[in-house]
């Protein structure tokens, strides 16, 4: 997995690419997320359009980021969730936790 990030309209957008399965690749997403949290950037979107799949390690990173931001008056939202990841969110009931949007624009609008 690799990732890029950018900011648009005061919202951080993190774009991982590949598979999130644990090990060094998963640390990359975790570290990037916490880098923004430490910079007090509290509106975060994770764009999942280019993530082939993730396992419970990836879900754990999303939840950890979600709860950390929520506890600091921030929010983590998902955009462009692929069918495979949507299926995992459904079977784990995490679909009830995360706000998910069909596009980055919709996700950004939801913050304003």
């Amino acid at each position: 997995m690799n990732l890029t990030d950018r900011e648009q309209d005061g919202v951080v957008i993190i774009e991982p690419k590949g598979k999130i399965m644990g090990g060094p690749d998963a640390s990359l997403l975790h570290d990037k997320l916490y880098e923004f949290i430490e910079q007090n950037k509290k509106k975060v979107i994770i764009d999942l359009s280019r993530v082939d799949w993730m396992n419970s390690t990836g879900l754990g990173i999303l939840i950890s980021g979600y709860t950390t931001l929520r506890n600091n008056d921030g929010e983590l939202k998902l955009a462009n969730v692929t069918e495979k990841i949507q299926s995992l969110l459904t079977i784990t009931k995490l679909v009830t936790v995360f706000e998910a949007y069909d596009s980055i624009d919709d996700a950004i609008k939801s913050f304003h």
Binding site: S56, L59, Y66, T92
Partner: peptide, 8 residues
């Protein structure tokens, strides 16, 4: 539900 482990 909000634990970051235990789903594998």
């Amino acid at each position: 539900l909000l634990k970051d482990t235990g789903r594998g």
